[in-house]
Amino acid sequence: MTGEGALSLEPTVVAVILAMAAATVLTKVGGLWLLSRFDVSDRLEAGLSVLPGAIVIALLGPELAAGGPAEWGAGGVVLLVMWRTENILLALVSGVVSVVAFRAVV
């Protein structure tokens, strides 16, 4: 946590964000540009298509593994609510409420 004001724009942070933006634009624009010139094999496409989910799991796994029963239980609640309702806000609120409840019990 920095003690800076809400409106501060630190040059280093802005530079990193711009680098992220450049990387993202490259992916958004690059596909149309590249694939109008070259063919991408189905094989490579299959590999690329699993990346977003795999990265989310790669982040989530160690994070949950570092938690305890309260976090695992609350994770299950989010999974269930999201799966049944597909409502992100409801899922998040349920998760946060249940993690507090589980922590009080466990």
Binding site: V16, A19, M20, A23, T24, L26, T27, K28, V29, G30, G31, L32, L34, L35, S36, V40, E45, L48, S49, L51, P52, I55
Partner: peptide
């Protein structure tokens, strides 16, 4: 951070295509 951003967003290349 930049590499993760690129990797996660690589799917946009396919979507754009």
């Amino acid at each position: 951070i930049v590499f993760a951003t690129f990797a996660i967003n690589l799917r946009y290349s396919l979507m754009g295509a």
